[in-house]
Design a protein around this nucleic acid. Structure first.
Lengths: 362, 362
DNA sequence: CCGTTTCATGACACCGATGTCATGACACCG
DNA sequence: CGGTGTCATGACATCGGTGTCATGAAACGG
């Protein structure tokens, strides 16, 4: 691979002049510039990042640690790959800055994280982002260095800058919407309470009920460990069965996530209950491969992974450029409700208030 | 960040000696080694890859180009993220070699590929892998350089080393298994024929029929563009309806992929047909988030994305180490059938032949 | 006890790009 | 016409490791 020296020789100038052409510092004569550019083209010259970053003491590299790519071995993981969208968002946010993103995968083993961090440091990354597979608290080994770190989809006790989904608010918005559609008996099938989402989402559910003056019925809030290998479907079946046996059964089942909702579809139909006519189903995530393909399509709320990534990327760029605003509270990100055919509008008159001005004009 | 010079000064030795400790070339006295290691620990020394690769003229970096991370904007993409498993496989294959994998995302725009390649070349990557979102033919701009390139999940007309799924064989194996289970009228709902999978998989289906001496009925092989935004479900509904109206309706619906199978579940149930008692459903991909969670779980065949990645990584390492075996035929990878509850065994006696020796002992 | 080999270590150059400073050629101004 | 400023360009050092070669000391053999 050719170097600036090769280019310089071919163009009959000094290496420094080639450098000037490359970087547009200092002045370069018109003819010289053309000669240099021609030489570069002819040699297929590509500038060496290694030499460059060595001199400049800047790598232009951002390190990204994620389990996204190999999450499937973990037993209790729900759908698996959503945090890929976070990575996508990060890339989008960093694209304009000219940074190169280097992604390392934990391969499902958290004990490899220190090694990955070491590799990144040896590349002299200018910043690090750790992306968790699902909203959780983490505890990374302290970075020995002053390299900035941002946590995405997770947080820690040290107050490291973090960006997380606003589970509470998202669930509240969805349940609000269900209430607005006329539903009064809303069941909530929650994820395990040892997951952050399994705690925050039920909170949002209860908040929406309270706001609307609806009573909270403990019988309608159940935690279900639905993704257990064997017994998961049984647990879910049993929980739904009990709810439907109640004196006042629910008119809609709110599920902890879209994958649970998919399983609920099958169970309800095996029970001979029609969705949405006899009972509605709502999800959480807007995991589109599921939500849009299910039949009928699933009402759910957008867990904005993309936005989380973008925000995390932006936050990191701030830190790198020295904007050390010590915001110890994590950034919370929310997203829109997606209303689809899996829940009926019990009171059609309510629908009107949800039309946009534009639609009303038509 | 400290350098070998800092370490050397602290340990009272020369930089070269520190280098020797790092790389275990040349001999180093016991005491000296300890002093150097202590100094490194105290300073939190991490060796600079930039300087290293500059001297060694080796970057230790593999470039990976994929649309995996941002595929969702594309209109005609089926499920979206499976090629992430390919990336995982590649990482696994390259892990032991000490290479660092740098992933670049096309952000859904193929016109960015040349730019990404340039970035990689400026990092002096030692090899490149291009990962396609689904099995397809591609046409990358010729690499100006002698950097080795491997295609994963795609191939080109130039005979670039490639690793692809063996769609034909996978489908044949699945249909064989259905036939072994006693099914004789097997319908095939294919993906669009302009996709490679939409051509190869039906071929495998027909091969399995021929092998078994079963007649091929054109009415049972239909292409369905099921993931069209609006009309997809309608098209699918209509196709299934027609098939079920036949004099000899099928006993099992073989779907082009798992996502289509998920949609078929909903449609069959809305038609009042029970799965698997009245009609069986089979998928393709073993997209576990769907196949295992659907109710009943889906019989499907493993599209071995992981293995494709591993093979691609291995192939690239061969090329880098100079093993230029000019294998112009793409490597074809297959995987196992996953038999789950969505298809019944019509003739139980057949099941015996599928028991493993171990099971028979019990 | 002297010549030769082995061991432990250091001096120095080099990889490729770029920051600093110097140099020569003009142009401009009083 | 001499002094000064601008422009175009190059020489040289530098970033942090590592390959090459040299050096001095200890060990070994006869």
């Amino acid at each position: 691979m050719s170097t600036i020296y090769d280019v310089a020789r071919r163009a009959g100038v000094s290496p420094k002049t080639v450098s000037r052409v490359l970087n547009s510092d200092g002045p370069v004569g018109e003819k010289t510039r053309e000669a240099v550019e021609a030489a570069m083209r002819e040699l297929g010259y590509v500038r060496s990042n290694a030499a460059r970053m060595m001199r400049a003491q800047k790598s232009g590299i951002i390190g990204l640690i994620t389990g996204a790519i190999s999450t499937k071995n973990q037993p209790s993981t729900q759908q698996g790959l959503p945090d890929l969208y976070i990575v996508q968002g990060i890339q989008r946010a960093l694209e304009s800055s000219g940074m190169t993103v280097m992604i390392a995968d934990t391969a499902g083993r958290n004990d490899r994280v220190p090694h990955l961090i070491d590799t990144f440091l040896s590349h002299r990354v200018e910043g690090l982002i750790y992306v968790a597979e699902y909203h959780q608290e983490v505890n990374l080994t302290q970075l020995p260095d002053d390299t900035p770190l941002v946590l995405a989809n997770c947080f820690d006790a040290r107050g490291t800058p973090a960006v997380v989904p606003d589970d509470r608010r998202l669930q509240r918005d969805l349940v609000r919407r269900l209430i607005a559609a006329g539903h009064r008996r809303i069941a909530y099938l929650s994820l395990r309470p040892d997951m952050v989402a399994g705690r925050l989402r039920p909170q949002g559910y209860r908040e929406a009920l309270e706001e609307a003056g609806l009573p909270f019925d403990p019988a309608l809030l159940q935690h279900v460990d639905f993704d257990q290998p064997e017994i998961g479907p049984q647990l879910l079946w049993d929980t739904i069965d009990r709810m439907l046996q109640l004196d006042q059964p629910p008119s809609v089942l709110c599920c902890g996530n879209d994958q649970m909702a998919m399983m609920v579809y099958g169970i309800l139909r095996s029970m001979g209950r029609k969705v949405p006519d006899e009972i509605g189903v709502a999800g959480f995530d807007n995991y589109r491969a599921i939500a849009e393909t299910l039949y009928p399509p699933l009402t759910t709320v957008d867990l904005p992974y993309n936005a989380i990534g973008v925000r995390a990327g932006e936050r990191l760029m701030q830190l790198i450029s020295g904007d050390g605003r010590n915001d110890h509270s994590p950034v919370q990100v929310a997203g829109p409700v997606h209303w689809r055919a899996s829940v009926t509008e019990l009171r059609p008159e309510n629908v009107i208030s949800f039309k946009t001005p534009r639609e009303e004009k038509q």
